Computed example of a mutant assay.
Amino acid sequence: MSGRLNSAQPYALGLFRIVVGLLFACHGAASLFGVLGGAGGEGLTVETGTWPGWYAAVIELVGGTLVLLGLGTRAAAFISSGAMAYAYFKVHQPGALFPKQNGGEGAAMFCWAFLLLVFTGSGAFGLDRVIGRRRTADRREPDREPVAV
């Protein structure tokens, strides 16, 4: 049984990456553009250039989109994880010790989910793998010179 589960691991990881990236990108889009309920669920947006809200929203949108696509997954996940760690410790944790008490459950979950992706990579369905396969195929194929007849 574990053999079958192990063979499905890249696909489960790919689906995990897609869902986490989509949720994170939606959060950024809501904050930047007021879609999907906007910032605070009221259709509001964060003011351009404000620290840290606007920068966090840009990281959420761009990082989430890159993770969703599986493009530069490890780097995007690393930056996104750091942004969520900052959000948790700077915004949520001063209010109370535990995430349930301070409203930081989302930040904590995103932080750890992205940290996992830093170490695992994109899994299946990612553009990282497609690009990696092309590069490997290009390296394997020797340069062919035209044969003179």
Rank of each mutant, 00 (worst) to 15 (best):
G40A: 08
F24C: 03
M84W: 03
L5H: 12
N6A: 08
G104T: 03
A124R: 03
P146L: 02
M109Q: 04
R129E: 13
T136V: 10
E60S: 09
L44D: 13
W54V: 04
P99K: 00
L117P: 11
L36C: 12
T73Q: 10
L13D: 09
W54H: 07
Y11H: 14
G21T: 00
F89N: 00
V130T: 08
Y86C: 03
A148H: 09
F110I: 00
V20D: 06
W112G: 07
Q101S: 14
G126C: 11
L23G: 15
Y55G: 06
M84K: 00
R17V: 03
G21C: 04
L36W: 14
V149Q: 13
S80D: 05
E47C: 04
R144I: 13
V62W: 07
A77P: 07
G104N: 02
G34S: 10
G126E: 08
H92K: 02
L69V: 10
A57E: 00
G53C: 04
R129M: 12
L127N: 00
A39Y: 02
L15V: 06
F98D: 05
A39H: 06
S7C: 10
D128V: 09
G103E: 04
S122P: 10
A113M: 10
A39K: 08
S122A: 14
Q9Y: 14
T50A: 07
D128N: 15
A113T: 04
R134P: 02
Q9M: 13
V147Y: 09
E105L: 00
I131W: 15
F125Y: 11
P99V: 09
K90R: 11
R133L: 15
M109E: 03
Y11Q: 14
G41T: 10
L117M: 08
F98C: 06
G14A: 06
V149P: 12
A56T: 05
S31C: 06
V147W: 07
F98K: 04
K100C: 04
L44V: 08
R4V: 11
L36Y: 14
G123R: 01
F78W: 09
A137Y: 08
L5T: 13
P52E: 10
R135P: 04
W51H: 13
R74M: 09
G3W: 07
F125Q: 12
I79D: 05
L36A: 14
A107T: 03
L127G: 03
V19D: 15
L22V: 06
R140V: 12
G70Y: 03
V62K: 09
V118I: 14
P10I: 00
P142F: 05
S122M: 02
G132D: 15
L69F: 11
G126K: 01
